[in-house]
Structures are given as C-alpha cells and as structure tokens.
Design a protein around this nucleic acid. Structure first.
Lengths: 233, 233
DNA sequence: TCTGATAATATGTCTATACATAATAATTCT
DNA sequence: AGAATTATTATGTATAGACATATTATCAGA
C-alpha cells in the first residue's frame, strides 16, 4: 500500500486526480512537494512535475514557487470549448452543408462596429452577410466585417465558392481573439432568414480576431433555435 | 539570421507560432522534425518537444509519431472557458451576492430528468430551486436535482446559508461532467422570477456532473437577459 | 520595531541520454 | 502479386543532475 510504484506521468496524474476527487486532499490543502511525491511514487521528480502541471492546467491545483502546490478552492473552473466551425458541425450531423452570400458591400462601419474593431468610422470596410444551411434548412446567419486595410485580397475574392471563414482560415494570419455568447430575441429580419417566428430566442456568438494590434475581422453568428453549444469538463 | 539561438521553450513556442501566423509554415505543411529544430534553435530536443506539445495542445499543430508534425488545416481553435461561478461573478462586478431557496422537495424526477440522470423514475431525488441575486436584482434562476442515493447528507443540509453549488463543491467528489449552452424564451414562470417580460431570450446553461458512472447532480441555470459568456482564444 | 540583506525552499526549466511506441517503408517469403 | 516480417523513423516519455526564479522565513543592523 505504502509503495505506490508507478512510472508514467499519466499514472501520477490519475493518482493525483483520484486523491483530489476522493477528498484525501481537500480544497485549499497543501499537498506534498514534488520531491516527496517522486519518492512515494518511485519515479523522477520531472515525472511528478509533468503530471502536476497538467492537473494544474486543468484547474484542479494552484501552484506557486516556494509556496507549494495546493488543491484549488473552486475546482473545475475551466472547460475546453471547441470553437464551432459551421461546415464541420453540419457535416458531422450527417447533413449537407451549403451557404449563400446575401449581401456584400464596402461601407463605412456602424459606429458600434467601428468601436469594437477600433477603427475610424470613415474608413471603408467589407461587410458580408452569409446564410449557412444544413440540408437546405437555415442553420446560422453570419454578419461579418473584414478590415480591408489589412486584408485587401478580400476585395477580389468570390465568397460564393469558399465561405468567408474558410477563406480567412487559409489567408489571414490569425493570432488572438475574443468570443462571447449571449441570447437574443430574433427580430423580423433575422427571423425571416432563419425561418422562425419573430421573437424566438436565438444563441448569438460574437467573435473578434486580432493580428498583433490590428483587428482583422468581426463576426456575429446567429444560430437557429435548438442550437446547443457543448463542452466536456 | 541562420542561427536563431534561443533557450527557453517559451522562446521556441513564440518562434513556432510566429512561423505559423506568418504562413512561413502553411496549413497542412510538414514542419522540420524535433531534432532538426533543436539544432536550428541551439537547444535540446526536449525543449523543442515541450514547445511543440504546447502549440499542439492549443490546436495549431497536428502531431503523429513517425508521420511528423504538420500545421493544422483547421486551426480548430480551442478556447478555455471559465465556468461561471455565480457568487464570484457577481462579486467581481462589485455587487452583493445573495440567494433564496424557492423550492425544496423530495420527488420522483420528471422522465426527462430521470433520463438525463440515468436513474429510474420511481427513485426519489432532491429537487431545489434557487434564485440568485446581484444587489437585489435577479441574476439567475437555478433548478437543481441531487442524487440523494449518492449524497444522503444533502437531505440534512440547510441551503439557505450556503448555496447548493458551494455545498457540493466542498462535499461531493466531483469528477467529470458536461456543459451545454443554449438560448430559450422565458416562460411566464421564469419571466416572473427574473423580472423580465415573458418570451425574453435567456441564456440557459445545463450541467451534469458524474462521479465514476454515477450522476451526482443536474443543474439548469437560466441567466437574466443581458448575460454574456466570455472567453479568450 | 522597522528595514534591508540573506538564507532557505518549492517550483520552473534545460540538458543529455536512453528507451518505448506508433506508423510507415522496405524486404522477404509464399 | 500479395501477405507477412523486419527495419526505420519521428514522436512520446523517463531519468538524473544542474541551475534559475519566485517567494517566504530569518536574522542583523539602524
């Protein structure tokens, strides 16, 4: 019993998680240091380190130099969310994906959009509206603004063949961004496009993408009712 | 230029990400193997390995033994979602958190709930409805079912002092779970409780929690309109 | 008693080396 | 030619040892 001989860092990880889950190590409690655990588990400290880092990444442990490692007070704070890629989602449902560009224009951004993109209102950007279908049924409506100052090639691209998103994936150097989800009531226009009653609750996803300090694109996706965003903890 | 001497794995990571972002390494393309990169960067293979694993974890690279490492086709980007902890959220807004237990009963689960919890319908479970407030304003409504077969102590606990969630955090051995988000129209009852018009779009969060194969609890949270779930990519 | 220097400590990371493992390529046998 | 076997290769992982760094504890001096 005393000698829990394991070797792989995954074994160490399992054991550590088991102790947290079983409350042998309680929230807030300091756990033995790496060297001690290495002796107990009969492996190298580096192996323990690898395991503890993984567990800490998942949010179960808080680690600080010198202060040591303790069980997180609020476990399970983090979940990994796979950002929806519409074509893939639809195809994984066994349905046929298609899309239709409803609107495309160079225009001055609305002040709200300009503010979010942090560009001036008198600078023209590309505005594209797309409707995504799963087997001919509307799946999501997309409003997108592209910073053509940064991506002038977008002006000469035909987005009926390739969707805007996929074009960006293979043409824009993405770095970081922000996602936000909220619920909203469909207005008449959106309801009409998605083929639902006006006022229906729809899930809205907002996404901004930056390269260095420049905003490349801003998207709002409105998903047809019934859409569900899933994630495992 | 040729000799990009770096030492820390973070430096390697930055350089790798820069090459992906700048499209020096294009989506689908095979990148040099670890040994070659180690020589180029003037560091040990283990250091390159650490960096590449981190980049792969973030979804930018696909790695397979023998086959090598290539840039992901779909930067199927993963986002780390901070699971909302209501009390903390409210306090971070600088508001005062409070909650009120509206309903508490031992009852047979609705068939829908029983199905989700994978328990039989004739087994009694604890049903608790709680309303969460931020500065006296309704913030979210919570419907929760607790598997009292697994957590009999819940029967003797007074949830007016401590919220159900916080009690569970410190009393239930959690392991894994599933989260899902969707939008729904408020029915009269929910609208009344949240103090909004019937039919308002609200964000619904569903969460199940398992320990080994046993479902411990199931929660549905309905957030007052305006609620936004944020995450960085 | 307060302040600043110093020691102690736990995690963070790098290195070199070795072997494990998965997947592909090459080879042999039928 | 086709199947089974054997190399080869790139990543995956373990190890011991060393040093870096952040943070806390301790102690000396004003």
């Amino acid at each position: 019993m005393t000698d829990t001989t394991v070797n792989s860092w995954l074994d160490v990880q399992s054991e550590v998680l088991a102790r947290i889950h079983s409350r042998k190590w309680k929230p807030g409690e300091l756990i033995p240091n790496e060297a001690e655990l290495a002796v107990e588990f009969g492996c190298a400290r580096a192996t323990v380190n690898r395991a503890l880092q993984a567990v800490a990444d998942a949010g179960w442990l808080d680690r600080r130099r010198k202060a040591g490692t303790r069980v997180a007070m609020h476990p399970q704070r983090k979940a990994v969310l796979n950002i929806p890629i519409i074509r893939k989602e639809i195809e994984e449902l066994g349905k046929v994906y298609s899309h239709k560009v409803l609107h495309r224009a160079l225009a001055n951004p609305l002040s709200k959009v300009a503010a979010q993109m942090k560009i001036s209102e008198d600078r023209e950007i590309l505005e594209i509206h797309t409707l995504h279908f799963a087997d001919e049924t509307p799946y999501a409506f997309e409003e997108r603004w592209i910073n053509t100052g940064f991506l002038p090639e977008a002006l000469n691209t035909d987005f009926t063949a390739i969707s805007v998103n996929e074009w960006l994936v293979s043409n824009a150097p993405l770095t970081e961004g922000r996602l936000s989800f909220s619920a909203t009531n469909a207005d008449d226009r959106h309801a009409g496009m998605l083929g639902v009653k006006s006022g229906s609750a729809i899930l809205r996803m907002n996404r901004t993408t930056w390269h260095n300090e420049i905003n490349i694109t801003l998207v709002t996706l409105l998903f047809a009712p019934g859409y569900q965003l899933d994630t495992l903890i």
